[in-house]
Nucleic acid binder design. Structure first.
Lengths: 224, 224
DNA sequence: AGAATGCTTCGATGGAGGCCGAACTATGCG
DNA sequence: CGCATAGTTCGGCCTCCATCGAAGCATTCT
């Protein structure tokens, strides 16, 4: 019986259906209130509250109090990454879905991952940015090229380095099994996509659907 | 309440301490019998057997019957990756270990991950192989360079592509947060390291400790 | 064939934890 | 100040499941 980091503790937190639903909902990136999460998980408010305090104690969540609301969010990208990994296995192992279904297809193309874009589009984008030498990639380390700050500023994206959080990070994509761009830059790009109305978030889902003109605009700016 | 792949089901499988210990033991890469796993998990044989059938049903394990033994092993690299991801979170979140401890240090330097080498040594090796253009890396895809087959053959490693399993794969390292080399080539290299007695596997641990001359030999061949 | 080993199945037990309603605290609003 | 909304805490219920001993198969050894 060997000792290691307490993996069972973490896994059992995710292992309850109600909590798993909550975490899944939070993978959308936006912080949610306890009531919203209760609804999402299909349990009563007291039950949800109990789950939330367990997730907090386990270090999987952070909370921000705003007035009488308490907004819960994932504790960080590493937690998001873990959930993606578990999702990948569940997906691979689950014999359930013989037919992927349209919504599933949309998820594969583009979806929100924590706070940035994931899916085929996102993977293609990172590839292209590296090709164009705007980003310098060395395995999981991604750095801005000297010219990049200026370039992104020109499209209206400010890449000022915020404290504590890296500007760029590689994040593994469960549907494509390749990396896409996370970090503040990844988040800023997603913000722009939504702000410019190139795409909208599917209600109650992580899927992101581009409008036809939006798709063209996105490709021109980021895949061009 | 949204529907997705059944992540809670998978996570709860890992969420039991006995099962987590078993999976952890199997991360060593060698398949183990039910009795060994019972010992590892600290439970009786009937209990272990019950856990094993659950893990089987969940698709996390494979089994191979040999005579009156049944050898259990991880179902695949994806499962191993998931466990590494959970381990990473548990490690980051667990405030327990104020002092890393020597054995932990050894794990960080070099350890077995499923069937290949992980840790600082392994990450350095992949970097070097890419630098020397023996491997061509494009994100998570790693391919053999044309010259590589011949090169590896010269050091006694046969890289014939087996069915179904890729020769090269990138595998994320939880201690270094960079990738190391998995796939049949990664496995073959670990085999060689053990066969040449450059290093030995620590008893009851995933740690791999190089002997001083073994370390030099390894560095000459793979980091040279 | 008989004994020994490896493993699984069965049945019973007990404990952990998910669940909700009701009561309690806290913040905001008129 | 009282009412409404958001959230947590408490107590009790109930289900699930991990656990083990004993018995049952299967395989190998002698």
């Amino acid at each position: 019986m060997r000792e290691g980091p307490d993996i069972a503790r973490i896994a059992s937190l995710v292992g309850d259906p109600a909590r798993a639903n909550m975490l899944n909902a939070l993978m959308g990136g936006t912080a949610l209130t306890a009531s919203e999460l209760a609804l999402e998980a299909g349990v009563s408010l007291p039950t949800a509250s109990s789950h939330l305090s367990k997730l907090m104690e386990g270090g999987l969540l952070t909370v921000a109090s705003q007035g009488r609301h308490r907004y819960y969010g994932l504790a960080g990208p590493q937690v998001a990454g873990m959930i993606e990994a578990i999702t990948g296995v569940a997906e691979a192992v689950g014999p359930k879905r013989v037919r992927p279904g349209p919504r599933d297809g949309a998820m594969r193309v583009a979806r929100v991952c924590y706070d940035h874009l994931a899916g085929e589009q996102a993977v293609a984008m990172l590839d292209r940015l590296v090709d164009r030498k705007l980003l310098l990639r060395d395995d999981n380390e991604i750095r801005l090229a000297p010219s990049a700050t200026e370039h992104f500023a020109a499209i209206g994206i400010n890449v000022a380095a915020k404290a504590r959080r890296p500007v760029c990070r590689a994040c593994l994509d469960w549907s494509v099994r390749r990396s896409h761009l996370a970090g503040t830059l990844g988040a800023a790009i997603l913000d722009k996509i939504i702000a410019e109305k190139w795409a909208r978030r599917e209600k109650d889902s992580r899927a992101v659907v581009f409008s036809p003109p939006g798709k063209l605009a996105f490709e021109r700016v980021f895949l061009g």
